[in-house]
């Protein structure tokens, strides 16, 4: 591989990982935009989604060799059931943990979110101990799980050195339409309008007859569904999942959301892609061990010099 090919390859990898990160960052930014909560449990929700996906893979008995209509239906069902599951969990979390705290100080809600993140991680550990063959027979709950390579590694660019595989294609084919749909939903539907109204001013929105609690619930569900979608793509792309992965993924996605301007949807997408590229390029040209330092340094520099992020609007402190 010559230098250009290496660069192009890293850009492809970075772009694909970045799009997955962007999908998760959208979940952070949606929730932050509407109730100003840094949803610490979101990364761990994605982890639960990935475990759900692996359970479904076991249930449908899918593996790299399966083909035919049954396999396709099974694969497609992952993209329906897992987002629905994550949306449900996020709805439940909002209903039980966050909604009673709507008028409480912001710190209380944040602590509640941290508590939920602990609960999710622990549930993930238990989930990994299920006596299924794919989970290691229930003997090594904490061990990373192999996610079967359901999507082929065939290079779509022919015999060249640069690889663009079915997996990369899958990431693009899932994330881009999801982002498009979300943008459409927020911009052009009544519910999207209601969401923007609640984000801007909950009291005024209530006075206009908007059921703010319902809007917030739906926002949580949409954020959860995007996280669920991302978890399936992540598992199919990276082929390994473990119960503590939520923290790392969550941090990347959260950094992306802040980088783009938290509360801004295009910002989260741009931020996610940038973080993916930064990670890939640091891995290649500096050293893997400095990648996290790089990501967090960018995070700190952005919030020091441009707290509103790349695409966020400048918000004045409310007095």
């Amino acid at each position: 591989m010559n230098d250009t090919e290496v660069l192009v390859q890293q850009l492809i990898t970075g772009l694909c990982n970045g799009m997955i990160i962007a999908l998760i960052a959208l979940g952070y930014t949606l929730v932050y935009g509407i109730i100003e909560l840094i949803n610490f449990a979101h990364g761990d929700l994605v982890m639960l989604g990935a475990f759900m996906a692996l359970t479904l893979v076991a249930f449908f008995d899918l593996n790299g060799a399966s083909s035919g209509p049954a396999a396709w239906v099974g694969l497609a069902s992952l993209f329906v059931i897992v987002p629905a599951f994550c949306a449900g969990v996020n709805w439940l979390a909002d209903r039980l943990a966050y909604r009673p705290l709507r008028s409480a100080p912001k710190l209380s809600v944040l602590v509640s979110a941290i508590g939920l993140s602990f609960i999710f991680v622990n549930l993930g550990l238990f989930w990994g101990g299920l006596p299924l063959e794919l989970f290691g027979g229930g003997n090594a709950a904490a061990a990373p799980k192999d996610f079967p390579g359901l999507i082929g590694n065939t290079n779509l660019l022919g015999a060249g050195n640069v690889q663009f595989t079915y997996k990369d294609l899958l990431v693009v084919l899932i994330t881009l339409p999801a982002m498009g749909l979300l943008t459409y939903w927020v911009k052009f539907t009544t519910m999207g309008k209601a969401m923007r109204a609640v984000a801007q001013n909950p009291t005024a929105a209530r006075l206009m007859g908007i059921n703010a609690d319902r809007v917030i619930s739906i926002t949580f569900m949409v954020g959860g569904a995007l996280g669920g979608l991302a978890s399936v793509v992540y598992a199919l792309y990276n082929n390994t999942i473990y119960f503590q992965m939520g923290y790392r993924i969550g941090m990347d996605a959260f950094t992306a959301a802040v980088l783009g301007g938290i509360g801004s949807l295009p910002g989260a997408m741009l931020g996610g892609i940038l973080i993916g590229l930064v990670r890939a390029l640091t891995d290649q040209y500096i050293a893997t061990m400095w990648t996290n330092v790089m990501v967090f340094s960018i995070l700190i520099l952005v919030i020091i010099f441009r707290p509103s992020g790349l695409m966020g609007a400048k918000v004045k402190d409310k007095v």
């Binding site: 943990a97 941290i114 508590g115 602990f118 991680v121 550990l125 238990f126």
Partner: peptide, 15 residues
């Protein structure tokens, strides 16, 4: 293995 579940529940219930 139950530690974080209990910590987490305690935090949520406490808040």
């Amino acid at each position: 293995n139950w530690k974080y579940l209990i910590f987490g529940l305690a935090l949520v219930v406490m808040m």
